[in-house]
Each structure stands twice: as structure tokens, then as C-alpha cells.
């Protein structure tokens, strides 16, 4: 049965698009059929992170308005089989999306894919509420930083009240994904620890993505980090998170950066 998962956060710049692309590619590499859907109308970026920016013809709004069929708007990934992108519109505004129209597109996607990953825009406005509206599950992307945790708390409240599931008296399954985590700074007490964040948000942990330059390297070249360098620390963390999404029990570890010989010798952290 298809699962609709929203990747959300409230706050901008915490890694929603990076995480959508990385988790989508990781699930597809495991043989699941996956559609990643960009809900950030007017400021689309999932196409860029996926390296499909020059292949966009039709978008989510075209499909919602019946201008294009879903098959015409879906872009197939060139690297991984079973991975598809439904881009957002860059020219229209978010009011072009309607609740009913989004519901129809999501229902259609459910019949074609195992996973539908909705990349939410930042904020708590219409775009963000529509991205979460039809979700069965939610990944709340959180940085170990006060403003991000506060916004995540707000989004959790919305997931519990403004989704179709919540209105039916059911629950959206929620997961926290901590990104840009620096274990060394956390151990020094300079950064909120995993336990702190989980205690405050009271939502189970999906994974811990370490702060890493591999993330920027991957987005520079338009490849999800899980495809760009599968052995890198963030990629391994995303692979573990994807396996947890499919129900596997995996011990929670923060993958460490690979250190070069000189760095190891000097006790420096790898770049």
C-alpha cells in the first residue's frame, strides 16, 4: 500500500529538500518505487538538487489544474530506476494550488508508487499545510538549534490538527530527523544534544545526519547525497533512516566522517 510522507520543518534552510532527495533516492535504490513531489510553488528547488532542472516541462500546478496529465509532468530519474520527480511551478503562486486538486493528484500518485515524498515549503502558510494535508507519515527535519526546534514543535501541532488523518481522529506517524548535527560540539555542550531535542519534541527519532561538506558537494552537482557518494557519512545516515522508514530496526549511530591520514595523525576533524 502506498505511503504518503511529508518532509517538513517550519523553519527554512534546515535541509528539507536535501532530505527529500536523499531519502527518495535511498528508498528507490532499495527497490521501492518513489515519487518526490515539490510543493514549494514559486521557489522550487527539488529539481535542482535532483539534477533535473533542465528537464521540467509540466509541473504540479499544471496537473492540479488539468492542463497536463500526471504522466506528462513526472520526470524519471536518469540514475535510479523507480525514482520520479513531480516539480513545482516556478512562475505561479501558491494560491494556484487547491485542497481538492492536491487531493486528486495525491490519490493518483498513490496508485502508481510505493512512496510519495512531499517536499514542504518553509513556513506555516497554505503551501506547507497543503504539503502535509494528505500525509500518512511526516519527517520533521530539525537542526540542533533553538529556532529550528521551536518551529518543529509548531509544525508537530499542525500535523496533529490540520491533516486529513487528524480530522478523521487518526494520527499522522511522526519522525524527527536531526540534520547538521556535530557530535563534537554536542559533547562539549555547545550544541543541543539528541536527547534534549527528543525530550522537548516527544517524537521518535528517524535518524541523525551529521554536519558534512558532502551535502553541499552533492547539491553542487545536482545529485542526491545518497547517490553522489554512498559511503559518505551523511549518505550512510540517510540510508539508515530510509531503512527505518520501511520498518527495519537499526541501531542509532552517528556515522563518522572518514579521516585522511594526516588529519588522523594531527587529530583534526576531516574536511
Amino acid at each position: 500500500m502506498a505511503k504518503v510522507l511529508v518532509v517538513t520543518s517550519g523553519k527554512g534552510g534546515v535541509g528539507k529538500t536535501t532530505s527529500t532527495a536523499a531519502l527518495g533516492a535511498a528508498l528507490a535504490q532499495r527497490g521501492e518505487s518513489v515519487a518526490v513531489v515539490d510543493f514549494d510553488v514559486g521557489l522550487r528547488n527539488l529539481d535542482l538538487v535532483m539534477g533535473a532542472e533542465r528537464r521540467v516541462v509540466f509541473d504540479l500546478i499544471n496537473v492540479v489544474q488539468g492542463v497536463a496529465k500526471l504522466q506528462q509532468a513526472l520526470i524519471r530519474d536518469k540514475r535510479v530506476e523507480n525514482l520520479w520527480l513531480l516539480p513545482a511551478s516556478q512562475t505561479r503562486d501558491k494560491d494556484a494550488l487547491t485542497d481538492e486538486g492536491v487531493g486528486r493528484v495525491i490519490a493518483d500518485l498513490r496508485t502508481r508508487f510505493d512512496w510519495v515524498l512531499c517536499d514542504s515549503p518553509a513556513g506555516i502558510e497554505r503551501g506547507a499545510t497543503l504539503a502535509m494535508r494528505y500525509a500518512d507519515e511526516a519527517v520533521i527535519v530539525t537542526n540542533p538549534e533553538v529556532s529550528s526546534v521551536r518551529d518543529s514543535d509548531r509544525i508537530i501541532g499542525m500535523l496533529d490538527s490540520k491533516t486529513v488523518k487528524a480530522e478523521k481522529g487518526e494520527r499522522v506517524t511522526k519522525h524527527v530527523l536531526i540534520t547538521r548535527y556535530d557530535p563534537v560540539r554536542a559533547a562539549k555542550g555547545e550544541m543541543l544534544g539528541i536527547e534534549d531535542i527528543l525530550e522537548i519534541l516527544a517524537v521518535p527519532l528517524l535518524g541523525i545526519i551529521p554536519e558534512s561538506q558532502d551535502v553541499l558537494r552533492a547539491s553542487n552537482v545536482g545529485t542526491p547525497v545518497t547517490l553522489n557518494d554512498a559511503a559518505s557519512a551523511p549518505a550512510r545516515a540517510y540510508f539508515d533512516a530510509a531503512r527505518r522508514l520501511t520498518g527495519e530496526q537499526i541501531a542509532m549511530v552517528v556515522p563518522a566522517e572518514r579521516k585522511g591520514f594526516m588529519n588522523r595523525l594531527l587529530g583534526r576533524r576531516a574536511a
Binding site: V146, A186, K188, G189, E190, L192, D196, I200
Partner: peptide, 23 residues
Amino acid sequence: LLRLFSSRNATAPVARERLQILL
């Protein structure tokens, strides 16, 4: 050992307490 030498910089407990009260 890290904790011992860096208690001056341990601002995370402050962040945690501020968040708990605010939320």
C-alpha cells in the same frame, strides 16, 4: 575530558531550558 575543559562554553543547557519554558 572535553566536558571538563569546556564548561565555560556549555551553552546547550541554557538553550534547552529556554526552549522548555517557551514551548
